[in-house]
Design a protein around this nucleic acid. Structure first.
Lengths: 108, 108
DNA sequence: GCACTATATGAAAATATTATCATATATTTG
DNA sequence: CAAATATATGATAATATTTTCATATAGTGC
């Protein structure tokens, strides 16, 4: 049984923080290139920067920026092997977002 | 049995479009105020603009912009009753996004 | 019609995100 | 060590999003 309840103000603060965190994750991911990267990495486990560039038909530098940013924000991790850097999903849960959105036809 | 397969290029185009659409929805929603509104409307079914303003402690004009934008992009719908305008989720599925994100602790 | 309330609108300012380009760094190979 | 390759970096430009403010519109009650 729940005994300690938060005051309305506390509850508000808690939910505010929660929303900020959620928005932060969503923003990190709300971009076609980034979603495509996540999609690739949900199928492929690991992938080198150049492969990603080729598949997405995207400039190396742009892809690199996106990868690094997503890594910084805790969505990806990477692993170096010689000249190559392999990126990987840090948190596979994130792929559920894509599934979740696909189910949600927001009549567009 | 699937007979017609897409060519790699077609497949790429399809997935590109899918990612753009998904990103569009995610962007619409990836903001603390908007998530808070969605959260409220997942509990309350319908809510007037002013109530939302008060609960979120947010300027009327700002809230209105967010509401109208989300409506425009197919996340909300609204209903007028006298002076008041009541907003409502158009697609309840969208609340699953929040649940989905909460499960996904992207170590932050 | 006047005052009041609720909501919308639009322009401008403030911020944040994304793309591009030139170049740096690091690793491998010969 | 020079050349080649893969990736990262950083500044800037291009764009997009968010906030603010002033004001418009529209409905209610007197």
């Amino acid at each position: 049984m729940e005994v300690l309840e938060n005051s309305p103000k506390e509850r508000f603060q808690v939910s505010k923080q929660k929303m900020e965190k959620a928005a932060y994750i969503l923003k990190t991911v709300a971009h076609p290139i980034r979603l495509a990267i996540i999609d690739l990495l949900s199928q492929e486990e690991q992938m080198g920067v150049n492969d990603i560039c080729k598949i997405l038909d995207c400039e190396q530098s742009l892809v690199s920026h996106h990868l690094i940013n997503m890594k910084l924000r805790g969505i990806l991790k990477s692993q170096k092997d010689g000249l190559n850097v392999y990126y990987e999903l840090k948190e596979k849960e994130i792929t559920k977002l894509l599934a979740c959105i696909e189910n949600c036809d927001c009549n567009m």
